[in-house]
Design a protein around this nucleic acid. Structure first.
Length: 493
RNA sequence: GGCGCCGUACCCAAGUGGUAAGGGAGCAGUCUGCAAAACUGCGAUGCAGCGGUUCGAACCCGCUCGGCGCCUCCA
C-alpha cells in the first residue's frame, strides 16, 4: 500500500484513489521562456517515477502536465529578441521535449497549454466573479482572498502574517494586498484575448485550475510540483478551484525538494544553475553524463529533501551504474552449470522485489529502493561465483529490467556510454577538453579491439612487459581492460 | 517579523518508539603473471547539543546551536 506525504495535512497518508485502480494526477510544468535546469529535471523525474510506480502497482494513470505559455517573462523574452511570443514558446517547448526525452521522462497523457484554454479560464473567472470570490477593476480581475476562509491551509500561513511580511508595493486598486490577478488587461503589443472585462490575458494561477478541471474533473487524486510552488501558486489554485466548484480540489499534494549547489538553492538569480542540455551537450559534459546517470543521481536522495549537485555526486552515480552494468555483462555471457541449490535464485529475486516495493510504498523512498537493487546485485554476483545457467542469467537480467524500469534505469542492453568526469569549476570558465579524452573519442572500437588482440598475443608469449604497456596506454585513454579466466579480455571506456 | 525544512561514520544516504540499511572511499585477504572485476573481513556503544515523556528514543515533546528555504517570479 503506497503511502505519500501530503503537504495539505502535513502527514504521510495511505494513498486511496477516488476511483478504484485509476489515478488522475496533475503536475505543474514549466513556463517556457528558457532552457530547463536540473531543478526542473528533478521535479519532472520525481513525478515520472511516481507515475511509473503507480502503473507498476496496477493503476491506470491519467497524467496531465501543463506548459505555461503566456506570461510576463515570455513577453519580456520575446521583446528582447524581437520575435513573437509564439516563437519563444515553440522553441522552448521543443527544447523541453528534447531534454526530458534524454532523461527518459515518459510522455504524459495530456500537455495542455494556457493559450489553448482561454475559454475555460474566462469561464472559471466568471464563475468566481458571480459567486463573489472575485472582482473586476479597470479590466483586471482579482481573487479576493478574504472571501475564502480556508486561504493559507496548504502553506500553513495566516492572512495576517502574509500581510505583515508583504514586500511588494501594493496595488491600491486591490481590496487586500494578497488579492491576486485572475485576468490582466493587456498593454499594447502584448498578447490579448477578448473577455467580458475587455482585451487581456490570464494571470498565472488560474490556468492550472482551469486546465486541471478540464482534463481531470473538479476533484482529482494527486497534484504535484516543486516546493517553491506551495505558496502562492498552489494555495491560489486551491482557492480558485474550491471557490468556483465548492468541492474538494486535489486530495494529495506532493512536493519535491530543491536541487542545490553548495547547499544553496539552484536559481537563476544566484546564477548557480546548470541547464540540462549544458550537462548533456557541452563538449566536456556531453559524453560524460548520460540521462541514466543523471537519473540515478537524482533518485539517490528521497524526493522530499534537498539534493546537492556536484561532480563527485555525478561520479558516484556513474560508478554505481557501472557496477550494475558489469553484472549485466556477466549475465549476458552464456551460463555453465545449473547453479547451486542453496537459496534458489527466484527466492532471492522475490525478496529483493519485496524490499523494493516496500521502499517505494514508503513515500517513494528511492534511495532505499536502490539499496534493494544493490543487494540483489551483490547476491547475483555471488550466484555467478558458484555458476548460473543461461536461463537463470536471463531470469536475473529480467528482474533488474522490470524493477529498474520503475526508476527508468537498466534499460540499455549494455554499458555503452563513455563516461569521464571532468571538473567544471565555474560557469564561464570551462576547462579545455583534455587531449586524452579527444584521443579516446577518436579511437574506434576496431582500433581498441586491435590493441587488445595485440596484448593477448603478447600475453601468450609471456611478454608481460609489452602487455602491461598496452594496458597502460589504453588506460591513459580512459579504457579499462579486464582479463577473463578463459583468456579473453573485455574492455570498456 | 511570520511559516517551514534540514543536521546520521571520511563522503553520499536510509531509518516514522524496540536496540544504527545500502553505496562510495580506505585497510586486509581470496583469485590473478601483474592488474581489474568479483567475493570475504574490518569500520558510528552512537545519530548537532541539553533536558523531558517512556520499560525502551536517531525517531515523540521542549529549549539551544548550526545550515537552508518560502513569505516577490521560481521545479
Amino acid at each position: 500500500m503506497l503511502k505519500l506525504f501530503n503537504t495539505l495535512t502535513g502527514r504521510q497518508e495511505a494513498f486511496e484513489p477516488i476511483e478504484p485502480q485509476k489515478v488522475r494526477m496533475y503536475v505543474c510544468g514549466v513556463t517556457v521562456y528558457d532552457y530547463c535546469h536540473i531543478g526542473h529535471a528533478r521535479s519532472a523525474l520525481v513525478f515520472d517515477v511516481l507515475r511509473r510506480y503507480l502503473e507498476y502497482s496496477g493503476y491506470a494513470v491519467t497524467f496531465v502536465k501543463n506548459f505555461t505559455d503566456v506570461d510576463d517573462k515570455i513577453i519580456k523574452r520575446a521583446n528582447e529578441q524581437g520575435v513573437s511570443c509564439d516563437s519563444v514558446t515553440a522553441k522552448y517547448i521543443q527544447a523541453y521535449r528534447e531534454d526530458m526525452g534524454k532523461l527518459g521522462i515518459r510522455a504524459v497523457t495530456e500537455e495542455p497549454r494556457a493559450t489553448e484554454h482561454i475559454a475555460d479560464i474566462i469561464q472559471l473567472t466568471e464563475r468566481l466573479v458571480t459567486k463573489g470570490f472575485a472582482y473586476a477593476v479597470d479590466g483586471d480581475v482579482y481573487f479576493e482572498v478574504s472571501k475564502y476562509p480556508e486561504y493559507g491551509r496548504l502553506s500553513k500561513r495566516r492572512l495576517d502574517d502574509l500581510q505583515a511580511g508583504a514586500r511588494v508595493d501594493v496595488d491600491e486598486r486591490k481590496r487586500h494586498p494578497m488579492d491576486f490577478a485572475l485576468w490582466k488587461s493587456s498593454k499594447p503589443g502584448e498578447p490579448a484575448w477578448e473577455s467580458p472585462w475587455g482585451p487581456g490575458r490570464p494571470g498565472w494561477h488560474i490556468e492550472c485550475s482551469a486546465m486541471s478541471i478540464r482534463h481531470l474533473g473538479e476533484t482529482f487524486d494527486i497534484h504535484g510540483g516543486g516546493m517553491d510552488l506551495i505558496f502562492p501558486h498552489h494555495e491560489n489554485e486551491i482557492a480558485q478551484s474550491c471557490g468556483a466548484t465548492g468541492k474538494e480540489f486535489a486530495r494529495y499534494w506532493v512536493h519535491n525538494g530543491f536541487v542545490q549547489i553548495n547547499k544553496e538553492k539552484m536559481s537563476k538569480s544566484l546564477g548557480n544553475f546548470f541547464t540540462i542540455r549544458e550537462i548533456f551537450e557541452k563538449s566536456e559534459w556531453s559524453e560524460e553524463v548520460t540521462g541514466e546517470i543523471l537519473r540515478y543521481f537524482l533518485l539517490s536522495t528521497h524526493y522530499h529533501g534537498p539534493l546537492d549537485f556536484s561532480d563527485q555526486a555525478i561520479k558516484e552515480a556513474k560508478n554505481a551504474l557501472n557496477g550494475f552494468y558489469d553484472l549485466f555483462n556477466r549475465l549476458n555471457e552464456p551460463g555453465k552449470t545449473g547453479g547451486g541449490d542453496g537459496d534458489p535464485l527466484t527466492a532471492v529475486i522475490e525478496r529483493a522485489r519485496a524490499s523494493f516495493v516496500q521502499a517505494m510504498d514508503n513515500d517513494l523512498n528511492t534511495p532505499a529502493a536502490i539499496a534493494a537493487l544493490q543487494g540483489l546485485r551483490s547476491n547475483m554476483n555471488k550466484f555467478l561465483g558458484v555458476g548460473l545457467s543461461t536461463e537463470d542469467r536471463q531470469t536475473a537480467r529480467r528482474a533488474f529490467g522490470s524493477l529498474g524500469a520503475v526508476l527508468g534505469l537498466f534499460q540499455l542492453d549494455r554499458w555503452d556510454f563513455n563516461v569521464r568526469i571532468v571538473s567544471k569549476p565555474a560557469h564561464s570558465d570551462l576547462e579545455t577538453f583534455p587531449p586524452t579524452v579527444i584521443a579516446a573519442k577518436q579511437m574506434t572500437e576496431a582500433d581498441i579491439d586491435g590493441k587488445v588482440a595485440e596484448r593477448i598475443e603478447a600475453k601468450k608469449k609471456r611478454d608481460f612487459k609489452r602487455a602491461d604497456n598496452i594496458r597502460a596506454e589504453l588506460k591513459s585513454l580512459g579504457i579499462a581492460l579486464e582479463d577473463k579466466p578463459d583468456g579473453t579480455t573485455r574492455w570498456k571506456r
